[in-house]
Design a protein around this nucleic acid. Structure first.
Ligand code: FES
Ligand code: FES
Lengths: 145, 145
DNA sequence: ATAATAAAAGATATATTTGTCTTTTATTTA
DNA sequence: TAAATAAAAGACAAATATATCTTTTATTAT
């Protein structure tokens, strides 16, 4: 287990990959995305269906079709991807699995964990998909292996 | 999904509960632990078997038997519980699921995620089970609901 | 219109996590 | 020694996450 589910990890990598590969209306196919982020193609296809339904990425069928992101999508914070796939558990949940996290009924990790959780939330909310993309464009960042 | 597996969450809560309930050679039974941390008894029993085999807690069978922790166990960092149950993934793994996390092949989250991960590691390594127990003894902390 | 392309949808399969039940072993008490 | 107690061990079951395969729908190009 990690901070995010495997499904969510694939989703984030795919979204970055699409953002990176599609400027000005270009599209990228599922096969290429899967190869680019090192994920099982059919499984990723399912994940993409979900992201598309939720409007996080856009898609067009048929020849020259594929996935792409418009300007509005690039302005969305990465947290939207996480929320869509994993829900808000990582942003609001108790570190030790108590039903609710609250200062009224705090678990032993509460104080420390709150700060960590806030930090995760910040990283996800204050950076847009487009922000990450700019760094990716510098060519030093990786989405596979 | 959270930062830790459900199994690990139960394990941490159980260890705290035992530390809290057993001073000077007293023991506490699995039923009482399960009730005290709000977990399924039979499942927790399995988790405890593992923790016992790994020497994180101690146990004695038969009447007046149960689980307990000696002074040495209380001095162990909480990270030992996490390592025993979930492995080191949360301490060393890549936030986006790349096979290895490294500065040589960094994912887009790498810099930010490294700091978060280090923070988690610190919380777990620099606090012993006994440390948490002292706070628990103040009676303001909770292990259930 | 037809054929080709590519995503969407639906059904199914596998693996892992979470959870339960029964039997066995160790220990204590009577 | 016999009965009672409590954890250990092993087998089994359910739920969820991960993964694959087939069919359908939308779009494009011929
Ligand atoms: S109650 Fe556990 S993190 Fe807040
Ligand atoms: S490479 Fe992803 S966190 Fe370090």
């Amino acid at each position: 287990m990690g901070v995010f589910s495997k499904t969510c990890e694939y989703a984030m990598r795919a979204v970055f990959f699409i953002a990176h590969r599609t400027t000005a209306g270009e599209r990228v196919g599922i096969r290429e995305i899967a190869a680019g982020i090192d994920s099982p193609e059919a499984f990723l296809a399912k994940i993409m269906q979900d992201l598309t339904r939720r409007g996080i990425v856009n898609s067009i069928k048929g020849p020259n079709g594929g996935f792409y992101m418009d300007a509005a999508s690039l302005k969305k914070p990465l947290s939207e991807v996480v929320l869509a796939v994993d829900g808000d558990g990582i942003f609001v949940g108790c570190g030790m699995g108590l039903e609710y996290c609250s200062a009224v009924n705090p678990c032993p990790l509460h104080n420390e964990f709150m700060e960590i959780r806030t930090r995760i939330q910040k990283m996800m909310q204050e950076n847009t998909i487009g922000d990450f993309n700019e760094e990716l464009n510098l060519g030093i960042l990786s989405l596979k292996k």
